[in-house]
């Protein structure tokens, strides 16, 4: 396996799509190639950072939430049920 193939398999690995047999080949390559090992570690770090940064709470209060709900419900035409109720 060359480094370009290893890089492709790394992406498959981080996508969660790496086949079992490819995983052992990739592992063997990483064992003997410090550059690819470093690259793999970098991807792993990047993955962690992405999850952390994107999934972090957005700092919204219950009041923000209620205000937006109100705005949404006021923006939709509620004619049908209201007319029936009158």
């Amino acid at each position: 396996m060359n480094c370009a193939q290893a890089s492709r398999l790394m992406h498959e690995y981080f996508d969660g799509d790496l086949a079992h047999e490819d995983a052992s080949e990739l592992k063997a390559h990483l064992g003997g190639c410090p550059e690819c090992r470093e690259r793999f570690n970098d991807y792993e770090r990047t993955e962690g950072f992405l999850h952390m940064a994107l999934a972090a709470p957005v700092g919204r209060t219950e009041a923000d939430r209620a205000a937006l709900t109100d705005r949404i419900l006021k923006s939709v035409p509620g004619r049908r049920s209201r007319r029936l109720a009158r």
Binding site: L54, V58, R60, R65, L73, S81
Partner: peptide, 25 residues
Amino acid sequence: LKGDQQAFAEIVGLYQDKLYHMAFR
């Protein structure tokens, strides 16, 4: 779809946070 506002409000309740988080990101 039949005009039940409460049902629509429940949809808003289920998805508001998810959509907001995504849009904010």
